[in-house]
Simulated scan of single mutants.
Amino acid sequence: MDVQLLLACSVMMTLMVVLPGPDWAYLIAAGTSGRSILPSLSGVLLGYLVTVAAVAVGVGAMVAAAPWVIVVLTFAAAAYLAYLGVRVLRDPPVVARADAPVAMGVGAPPATVDRPWLRLAQGAGVSGLNPKGLLVLVVLLPQFTDASGSWPISVQLAVLGLIFVGCCAVVYTVVGLGARAVLRFRPSAMRIVSRVSGGAMIVLAVVLVAEQVPHLAGWA
Rank of each mutant, 00 (worst) to 15 (best):
D146F: 10
Y80H: 08
G85D: 02
V106G: 00
V71L: 00
L129M: 13
V106C: 07
N130K: 08
A78Q: 06
V139C: 02
A121P: 03
A100T: 14
G123W: 12
L129F: 14
D114E: 11
V113K: 11
L118E: 09
V113G: 05
A103Q: 04
V69C: 03
A76Q: 08
D114A: 15
L81T: 00
V136G: 11
V139E: 05
A100E: 13
A108K: 06
P101L: 04
S127A: 13
P67Y: 15
P142E: 10
Y83P: 09
R115Q: 13
V88N: 09
G133M: 07
R97P: 02
V126Q: 05
V138F: 08
P101R: 04
V138D: 06
N130Y: 09
A96Y: 00
V113E: 14
A65V: 12
G125I: 13
V113H: 10
L73T: 00
G133E: 13
R119C: 07
L141K: 09
L73D: 03
R87M: 03
V71F: 00
W68D: 11
V72M: 07
A82G: 13
P109F: 08
S148L: 02
A100M: 14
W117N: 05
V69Q: 10
V136C: 13
L89S: 09
R97I: 07
P116D: 02
R115C: 13
L81V: 06
T145A: 04
G125V: 11
P101S: 06
T145P: 04
L141A: 10
P67S: 12
A111C: 05
L89R: 14
Y80K: 12
L120R: 07
M104D: 01
R90C: 14
A98D: 14
G125E: 10
V72R: 08
A111L: 03
S127Y: 08
A147R: 06
L129K: 14
F75D: 05
V88R: 09
K132Q: 10
P142A: 04
A77L: 00
P101V: 05
L137E: 01
P67C: 09
A147N: 01
V126Y: 06
T145H: 01
P93Y: 04
A96N: 15
L120F: 12
V63H: 11
Q143Y: 08
L137Q: 00
G107Q: 04
G123T: 15
V71K: 02
T112L: 02
P67I: 09
P67E: 14
V106S: 06
L129Y: 11
P93V: 03
K132W: 11
M62L: 15
A65W: 15
V139F: 04
